[in-house]
Nucleic acid binder design. Structure first.
Lengths: 202, 202, 202, 202
DNA sequence: CATGAATGAGGGTTCATTCAT
DNA sequence: CATGAATGAACCCTCATTCAT
């Protein structure tokens, strides 16, 4: 009964395809990405991809969801309860900076789906954005319970936190800054957010 | 000597093509956009586009530059010397919000080029990003001269200002918020930035 | 104003494509037929076919209709009023035999659509069959008016005339008989039909 | 020595595959038919088919031969010596009508191979056609011996009998007539044939 | 200059066939 | 013997680009 092993094999292949797909999609975008090239890089035949995914679009969406899961896990860990709000914000910033560096393919694909113009994926990307905002919102509510902040519009605040963190790192990367340089901005950005949401953002 | 009139005609056609191209590119993305459809919408023959632009890629880049010029002009106006830093930041935010609403095609195309994954356009997009940061940096230096702020790293601060402003609006739009709701955040966001860069961002 | 010439050119190309398509479809069947090969044989580029026909299926149907028009014209001419019923039946037989020989591609394609199993074309093929039966039925009615025959069920009789004529020639061709040999059966077959429908077929 | 049982099992599986193949081929034609679907319907694995048949083409041909055997058996029974020529012709017609109704899959596949355009199967189909003509020819010779008819060209006459019978039923089916309606034409068609071949077909 | 008919490279997808288990 | 996961050849169709008019 090699069922379990086969199942593991299958899942491993699935992951390998998605990893190579992320690389290809990140480099070329959805349309220019070549299924054949993805298959070659994954070390499998062209037709084999269709044993794991319905079609190119399905592969992209599954990959996107997989990426989002990983990123959400990392973010949740960064926002874990220990520490002050400032510490949690700094951890969030560094977590994003790390994702952008270590899993830059995934980071780019996710950003592209979110802010790119390919409407075919906007619905899914929006769902993922909501998840991110929700996780940050949860943390902010805890902080409010603790009396660390006082906000009337948690969602708007959460969006602001996410936007600033994410976009800062994205822009910095576009401008060619290294992870080291970027990470040094964790403190200042957290400080900025803290002061900002302390009283003003209603 | 109908040279001037011809020149004007030629430029008018060029502009018309780029406008329709922006609409098509914003709606479908670079790859899905159809040269034939752009030509039709511009009221010219398919082949005529190639009398004005080298190829599809060239059309996209020229259009991108044209959009950036317009946006930079709007931003420069918003950051004009009159008023306090807070007022200028609020004007910047509202200017972006307005661009996102009134010229959503252009805004989307620009954002997509910047944060999208098609590396073919990343070099150009980066150039444009530098222009934006430079304009904001210029204003920040003026504010520093006036004593409104005190920053050791103008570029990082400028990037933060741009990131927060731009990304907030972008995310809010993705989540379906109206311009009215977004514009109401001009004050809070400016306040956040002000407090943030007041002392902490070094 | 080269409009008319262009129109003629266009129609000529359309005909050339359909002729080559008939050859390819007759040789290989719908599925095995290769659009690329058809284009090559028609002396045009692969993509050009799609300027004249929506898709492969559309090409096949248009070709089928075109073939049917030609065959119907030939049949109508054969059944023209001059002569006795016997003469008209013999002309019909010879007309079919000639079509089977001179335009064997067309003949085969038409037969294949009619009696083949590709349901995608059965509706259209049935329409064509009805046309054939109607034309023969018309002639039979004339003969009835003239008192040459006396039939209670014209449609059944027409179907019988068509079946026998068509199928005899088809089978004879499958068995490798030459047109010469086949045509010699025109008299006997007509005689058979005449005797048959004279009184018995009600 | 389970050899015999195994052999029986093997033959049973072979038959099951061919039966399902006939259904699939009749419904979709050779090219559109799907080996995987046939395997599923036969309750075996995809690869197993290749233990019984060389390839798709071989499966089709074997199935075709199998069908022809059944049909020939039915035809031979219909043409058995008892009864007058008229009765035998009527039995032949009814036998075909019955085959077309009760074993429509097989009937359609056979007709399609015979009159279809896929030349890959024409050689085999021709062989089968010869068998049919031979069987009918045999009966005609008996009738000639009995003095029921007088024909100089038995083969042509046999072909005519087959053509008229087969093609009438086929056309009637294409036009949507029920078996009941079709069977009622057994008498008239037999009469037609009888009169026709009585003296005229030489 | 303007046009649009013609082109053909390119790619997603299917499916008959193979072969390791 | 039986299986079905893996393979890759094959093909329709799109669309950016060219060029004769």
């Amino acid at each position: 009964m090699p069922k379990i092993v086969d199942e593991q094999m299958r899942e491993a292949t699935r992951q390998r395809i998605m990893r190579q797909a992320a690389s290809e999609f990140a480099r070329l975008g959805f349309d220019q990405a070549n299924i054949n090239a993805i298959a070659e890089q994954a070390g499998i035949g062209k037709g084999t991809i269709y044993l794991y995914f319905e079609n190119k679009r399905d592969l992209f969406l599954e990959m996107l969801r997989s990426i989002a899961q990983v990123q959400l896990t990392v973010i949740r860990a960064a926002l874990a309860q220990e520490g002050t709000l400032r510490q949690r914000l700094e951890r969030l910033f560094r977590a994003f900076a790390h994702l952008a560096e270590e899993e830059s393919d995934n980071f780019n694909v996710y950003m592209s789906a979110l802010y790119g113009v390919n409407r075919a994926f906007q619905a899914e990307a929006t769902k993922l954005l909501r998840d991110y905002v929700a996780v940050i919102g949860l943390m902010l509510e805890q902080s409010q319970t603790r009396g660390e902040i006082h906000s009337h519009n948690i969602e708007a605040t959460a969006l602001m936190v996410l936007s600033l963190t994410e976009s800062y790192i994205l822009s910095a990367k576009v401008l060619g800054q290294s992870e080291l340089v970027i990470v040094q901005q964790a403190g200042p950005v957290a400080e900025l957010i803290l002061r900002g949401i302390g009283t003003s953002v209603s």
